[in-house]
Design a binder for these strands. Structure first.
Lengths: 206, 206
DNA sequence: ACCGTAGCACTAACAGTTAGTTTATCGAAA
DNA sequence: TTTCGATAAACTAACTGTTAGTGCTACGGT
């Protein structure tokens, strides 16, 4: 593992970044749908195939730095302080992510995303991946030992919190409100004593 | 408005159904990715443009009957018995949906869907719509009066339950497990006012 | 019987994406 | 240094989903 780089990898990274920057500039100037892949490739002075060797799809040009999100979420679980409860750690991370993507500097980008169905759909499919990664991290935590179902469920809830808060009028408050619900849902999975198929919390008792 | 048919609408419906049946047959025979739109159109003996006038996208050929899902979910909220609590009604509906799509007869179709990233992504984006519709129905219920955020959150959680249960080894049990979590999350939103009929049977006494 | 509408077809194209193939540059072993 | 394998990047050329544009025909209401 050569952590320092060779010239080759530096050039590759430079090409990738040049493509991404050019694409974002054109998208913001003329609108996402009005810019074609061939436009981006020409402006970045690379071949179309080269562009696709760096980015799997047109939409990926917009979500260039979202690879780190997946890792950060998983790390919020795996790298948290010993004995620190799960949900507050996740809440802190989601808070940070929401703050990051509702910053003023990111506003034009998100306006563009919200205006394009293709981009919104792509974002949602990314979140699916994130939820699965996060679910795996939660399931793997030896201090928690949740049901596989419970782990994946909490993971999806957390991702939902991110998605919903991003669109809420007061994103930070929304995160807190949703995480109260998540906390409660999580507590239910912590009680093994709740006998099997009970309809305890349903009607039956009116 | 003639609610009974004209010949025209009958023919249109027949064309639509013929396209859908042909598409499904070809997809199951040769695989989704191996069949092109032009193949389907030719085999159904219609023009490509005709096909697209009936279905918005190739993926929509597979999810032909999923328009009703959206309505059924919303109706599970709006049409439920007076004073019936929200969550059990939704759980019943999700149970029915999961049972329906894990039936043996539907197995090949879902195997095909699971094998195709494009179809999975399309399904996710459908679920997003479903969640928004459901959230609106919950928010509009005068007997509940939840926060807008809470309504949309519960809606997404319910859709998550459907998605997760569909893939679980024991789908019915998964629905129950997840709905215990949802019930608990919902109760949190009931705490402050805690007036009418949404049960004194939550925890607090466990 | 007439006319407007709407379903459908056809051609042609556009946009994203993917082979298949080739060149040139780099990293390191000889 | 020289050589050699690997790989980034190029180019060509297509394939696939999707959409305009246009016109014909048949249906349905009057």
């Amino acid at each position: 593992m050569t952590v320092p780089t060779g010239r080759r990898e530096r050039k590759k990274a430079a090409t990738r970044q040049k493509i991404a920057e050019t694409a974002m500039r054109l998208f913001l100037e003329r609108g996402y749908d009005a810019v074609g892949i061939r436009d981006v490739a020409a402006e970045a002075d690379v071949a179309v195939t080269t562009l696709f060797s760096h980015f799997a799809a047109k939409e990926a040009l917009v979500f260039e730095q979202d690879e780190g999100f997946e890792q950060r979420l998983a790390q919020a679980v795996t790298d948290r302080a010993p004995h620190e409860p799960l949900i507050p750690a996740l809440r802190r991370e989601i808070h940070a992510l929401v703050r990051h993507c509702t910053a003023d500097s990111a506003a034009p980008v998100w306006r563009m995303i919200d205006a394009s169905p293709a981009l919104r759909e792509y974002e949602e499919s990314m979140r699916l991946r994130h939820a699965e990664t996060l679910g795996a991290a939660i399931a793997a935590d030896p201090g928690l030992a949740p049901t596989p179902i419970a782990a994946r469920t909490i993971a999806r809830f957390v991702i939902d919190a991110y998605a919903l808060a991003r669109e809420a009028p007061d994103p930070q408050a929304a995160v807190d409100e949703i995480f109260q619900m998540i906390e409660s849902a999580w507590q239910v999975t912590r009680r093994p004593g709740d006998h099997d198929h009970d309809r305890d919390s349903d009607r039956d008792r009116a």
